[in-house]
Amino acid sequence: MRLYGLKNCDTCRKALKSLLDVEFVDVRADGVPQVVLTQALERFGEALLNTRSTTWRGMDDAQRARPPLELLTDHPTLMKRPLIEQDGTLYLGWTAETKAGLGVA
């Protein structure tokens, strides 16, 4: 299982505490593999973009109008977190639905 997030993100830290045998990938330092971004965008669509982030607020309208895959490739911190991959299945956020899918109480 892999968790893509930021090491200083409270939600990512909560998820890491609850999950066993998880590999943490810091998106700021390591980025997100293109294949994972593509799959996540296909699965979650525009919900993958964190439009409340500092990065998003710092962009002008022309930058925001770029395709989501380009934005996420150039600015991986724009991704909602955490993005969790387990056996080919992707989960976004640390919601009750994600916890249920991963079998976490």
Results as ranks from 00 to 15, higher is better:
E23M: 01
E23K: 12
D26R: 13
D26G: 08
D26Y: 01
D26T: 08
V27P: 02
V27Q: 02
V27W: 00
R28P: 09
V32G: 12
V32N: 04
P33K: 03
P33D: 15
Q34Y: 07
V35N: 12
V35P: 05
V35F: 10
V36G: 08
L37C: 11
T38N: 11
T38I: 05
Q39G: 10
L41F: 03
E42V: 10
E42L: 12
F44A: 03
F44R: 07
F44W: 06
G45C: 02
G45P: 01
G45Q: 05
G45T: 06
A47E: 13
L48G: 11
L48T: 05
L48A: 11
L48V: 05
L49A: 06
L49Q: 05
R52I: 00
S53D: 03
T54S: 14
T55W: 00
T55F: 01
T55D: 06
W56M: 08
W56I: 02
R57Q: 13
G58I: 01
G58E: 09
M59C: 06
D61A: 15
D61P: 03
A62H: 04
Q63K: 07
R64A: 00
R64V: 00
R64S: 02
R64M: 00
A65K: 07
R66S: 12
R66L: 15
R66T: 04
R66H: 10
P67C: 12
P67K: 14
E70A: 13
L71E: 03
L72K: 07
L72Y: 09
T73Q: 15
D74I: 06
H75R: 14
P76S: 08
P76D: 12
P76Y: 04
T77V: 10
L78Q: 04
L78D: 04
L78K: 02
L78H: 04
M79Q: 10
R81A: 11
P82F: 01
L83N: 01
L83I: 03
I84V: 13
I84K: 02
I84G: 06
I84C: 06
I84W: 00
E85W: 08
E85R: 06
E85M: 03
E85H: 06
Q86R: 15
D87E: 15
D87W: 00
D87F: 00
D87R: 14
G88Q: 11
G88T: 07
T89Q: 15
T89G: 01
T89H: 13
L90R: 02
Y91F: 15
Y91R: 08
L92M: 10
L92I: 11
W94S: 09
T95I: 05
A96N: 13
